[in-house]
């Protein structure tokens, strides 16, 4: 399910079946210090992953709109804010909270997060829509959905 009118109607009628929340965490930056190119590719990938997972498990996973934050900022601030988000939504109730990201900085704070962190490294083969990348991405998505299913 998504943050969309038609899905919300469905969600309200079937709340007890939707017990899993998925929040993609996407870092942004416009600072030349960082590799903005890499950040955008990661952002695109993250969106693809989130959409595909939602499509496969539409009836059980609620996909939150992406959580955006400035890259390389003071992370404790974001940690508090994100946990706050999760706390508020978790009461809905959601049994499983997954935080999906390609930003490795979260890994260090995994213990303090109010959800299961699904971090994985991005593939660096450039174009996301090329044939080769598609095969790799599909495979990664399959593994990711298996991981999520193992929590259920």
């Amino acid at each position: 399910m998504r943050w969309q009118e038609e899905d919300i109607d469905l969600y309200i009628g079937a709340k007890e079946y939707v017990d899993t929340l998925l929040i993609p965490l996407m870092p942004l930056s416009m600072d030349d210090k960082f590799d903005i190119n890499k950040l955008t590719v990661q952002g695109e990938l993250l969106t693809i992953f989130a959409n595909e997972i939602e499509k496969q498990f539409k009836g059980r996973i609620f996909l939150m709109p992406t959580y955006n934050y400035m890259f390389n900022e003071e992370s404790s601030l974001e940690l508090t804010r994100l946990n706050n988000w999760v706390d508020k939504i978790e009461a809905n109730p959601f049994k499983h909270i997954f935080l999906l990201t390609l930003d490795h900085q979260w890994k260090k704070h995994e213990r303090d997060l109010a959800g299961n962190l699904l971090w994985f490294p991005a593939i660096q083969s450039g174009n996301v829509s090329s044939k080769e990348s598609q095969v790799i991405i599909k495979d990664q998505i399959n593994q990711l959905s298996e991981l999520i299913r193992s929590y259920w």
Partner: peptide, 26 residues
């Protein structure tokens, strides 16, 4: 597309039911 809430069903998706379509969500 599962007629329950719209997940993707797969053939023999569950080891217990190798000759049925299975929806992983519910």
């Amino acid at each position: 597309v599962c007629k329950h809430l719209g997940c993707f069903v797969s053939w023999a998706g569950s080891e217990d039911y190798p000759d049925q379509f299975f929806c992983p969500c519910h």
